[in-house]
Simulated assay, not measured.
Amino acid sequence: MIEIEIVIRTVASFGLLLMAERVLGKQTISQMTIFDFIAAITLGAIAAGVAYNTSKKPHNMAISFLSIKNRKLRKFFVGDPTVLIQNGKILESNMRKMRYTLDYLNQQLREKEIYNIEEVLFAILETNGKLTVLRKPQFRYVTKQDLMIEVKGENRLPIELIMDGEIIENNLKQNQLTEYWLLEELQKRDVKVKETVYAVLLGNGHFYVDQYKDYISVPIDIE
């Protein structure tokens, strides 16, 4: 009877872990908040305990699960997003509170192609540690939809055709492309296969080629 109870408990614990995955979401460890990470480990430990410790009552695990799902408890452990920039002004007090340095703030902005803080309407440090940015209206990108320009549809992913000077023959075959067509495209650009680092057919039909020799007279290398 004990073995049957353990099997039932194991199945129930596994089911509860699947439910927990829905609550915590599909996040990588780098995207998890501290609370999410601790909660995931705790749930695993609780599930193992419930499955094999017959003295532990199943309702204890349900209570633990509900506490994780509870919004107020979650807010208590996770906290709220913090505004670091408002209307182009850095909020130093919030920066100090979050132990966020100006160097790291500038790095995060550059990763979002922002080099002028005055362009930022709001920069918010989310609970998972990521910085989200809303530009001022005058600095936001204009889309083709804004200009009412017809857009050519894309119905496939980019296809890698050459990598490190070698043709990827499987990709040619799988996409009904021929080596003759590929060589012809390279010839149009006066490029040889062995001179090519990377060649890809993009979703919009554009053929992109990068050579070993970049023909840049003064390369910028900032460390």
Rank of each mutant, 00 (worst) to 15 (best):
L182R: 01
P58Y: 11
G205M: 13
T127F: 06
V7L: 15
A45M: 13
I68K: 06
V218H: 05
L182G: 07
V197R: 04
G25C: 12
P158C: 14
K112E: 07
N116C: 03
Y52H: 08
I167C: 03
I117R: 00
Q174C: 04
I38H: 01
L182Y: 04
A20R: 00
I8F: 13
Q27T: 06
K152S: 14
L177G: 02
N170D: 11
D190P: 00
T42Y: 13
L17R: 01
L134F: 04
V151N: 10
E5Q: 12
K89M: 09
I117S: 01
P158L: 15
N128D: 09
Y215H: 07
L202K: 06
F122V: 07
S217K: 11
E150Q: 12
L183M: 10
L24A: 12
G205F: 13
V209M: 03
E179S: 04
Y215Q: 06
Y208P: 00
T178I: 06
L186R: 01
R96P: 00
L161W: 02
L24S: 03
A45W: 06
L91K: 00
K56P: 00
L157T: 11
T196Q: 03
E126F: 02
V200N: 04
D164H: 11
H206A: 15
L183E: 07
I2L: 14
K213C: 10
R9Y: 06
V193H: 01
N170H: 10
M32R: 00
I6M: 09
I41G: 04
I46V: 15
A123W: 02
L18S: 02
S55K: 08
F139W: 03
L182E: 02
I46A: 10
I38K: 00
V197D: 06
V133F: 04
M1W: 12
S64W: 08
E184F: 15
M19Y: 14
T143C: 07
Y180D: 14
E150G: 09
R189M: 14
I34Y: 06
K213M: 11
